[in-house]
Design a protein around this nucleic acid. Structure first.
Length: 277
DNA sequence: ATGACCGGTCGTACCGGA
């Protein structure tokens, strides 16, 4: 089974590239992040022409996650139990505004595809370590840990992949000195990843394809991609029974090239079939 | 050339991204 995760930075803007990438790469299951559209706006008909069923979870302008599968989609979960909502004040919001119903952002969707429990995840950015968005990020990871613990108890092979917005080690950023005092590299964020691995999840590190670092994200600005000033923040976490059957994993840097790319590259993982033979 | 921000929005500037 071939699985992949890709932060597409708007599925509408990326649709031509997504369709050609699906046709060339032929994954069985794809986790998408930052689709930036409601579920009813997702181009499900277009991907269906290539044989993929869609489960999409979105709330409009921001965020948005989806799972595409050509091996079935069952037991879809929009979000996970205990998933927090952002409770900080929006920019420009005053204390006098009416209370609003707090709904979790569209950052997680789960589905069972071909016997594998699959989660597409888009962790909060965090912005700066002193912001409410950072506290929310850590809270979201704590809730995710509890939810994935329960998911693992189902006994299916489990994949939890997506844009974690955390670089696991200093090796996963192009220049650690640039990130001192920034999100994505703080001990608390990295501890959140450690706690996910302590559940029994394994970090399936992809091959880099070029250069020594399997980065998955490069800023659009300042020629960052061309200078390989990147980060590994799109992660493929898998349960032991899945991770032990990984036959190959790579960062598809080709998808970051040319006109109109996402700022993230896909991670593609091949997993051998379970059982003898 | 992989080639020097992009996507979204009641927009035509500004926010969010990481």
């Amino acid at each position: 089974m071939r699985l992949a995760t890709w932060n597409v930075n708007s599925v509408k803007a990326r649709l031509p590239r997504l369709l050609s990438w699906l046709a060339e790469t032929a994954p069985d299951v794809v986790c998408l992040q930052e689709t930036k559209c409601r579920a009813d706006q997702f181009p499900a008909a277009e991907v269906a022409e290539l044989g993929y069923a869609t489960a999409a979870h979105g709330d409009g302008r921001w965020n948005g996650v989806a799972v595409l599968s050509r091996v079935g989609i069952e037991d879809v979960s929009n979000g996970f139990p205990g998933e927090p909502a952002y409770e900080g004040e929006a920019e420009g919001q005053t204390k006098l505004t009416e209370p609003v119903l707090l709904v979790p952002e569209a950052r997680a969707i789960g589905a069972t595809c071909g016997g594998v429990r699959v989660w597409s995840l888009y962790a909060p950015n965090g912005r700066t370590p002193d912001s409410a968005h950072y506290a929310y990020k850590l809270e979201w990871f704590r809730a995710l840990r509890d939810a994935l613990g329960a998911e693992l108890a189902r006994g299916l092979p489990l994949v939890a992949c997506g844009d974690y917005n955390v670089a696991p080690t200093d090796e996963d950023v192009w220049d650690p000195s640039v990130f001192v005092g920034s999100t994505h590299v703080t001990p608390a964020e990295r501890q959140a990843l450690t706690e996910l691995r302590d559940l029994g999840l394994h970090d399936v590190v992809p091959a880099a394809m070029k250069g020594p670092h399997p980065y998955t994200y490069w800023d659009y600005r300042a020629g960052a991609f061309h200078k390989d000033m990147g980060m590994r923040i799109d992660l493929f976490y898998a349960s032991e029974d899945c991770a032990s059957r990984v036959s190959s994993a790579y960062v598809d840097r080709e998808a970051r090239k040319g006109k109109g790319p996402s700022d993230h590259a896909p991670v593609v993982v091949d997993v051998d079939a379970e059982g003898p033979g």
